[in-house]
């Protein structure tokens, strides 16, 4: 399941400072998505660009809802 793959990738990233450094250094969204997909795939976590974009939209919604 792609969402499970992303959750697994998220946990890996939060534990791995080297992975974080690469992702932090990439602010441009298309470049970030490509990098995240590549780093994820190298670790057996597969998700599409659209799935990542939807995860970002959901994260933004959750963030904004918390202020209401």
């Amino acid at each position: 399941m792609p969402l499970e793959d992303f959750e697994r990738f998220r946990r890996l990233v939060l534990e791995d400072v080297t992975l974080q450094e690469a992702l932090k250094a990439t602010a441009d969204v298309p470049a970030f998505l490509a990098l995240a997909r590549r780093l994820g795939a190298e670790r057996g976590c597969h998700f599409t660009e659209e799935e990542l974009r939807e995860t970002m939209r959901a994260a933004r919604r959750t963030w904004l809802e918390s202020w209401i």
């Binding site: 998220r10 939060l14 974080q20 992702l23 995240a36």
Partner: peptide
């Protein structure tokens, strides 16, 4: 800060 995709997607 949350405009950066890393900050948006990854939180402890």
């Amino acid at each position: 800060r949350l405009r950066h995709p890393f900050a948006l997607l990854f939180r402890h």
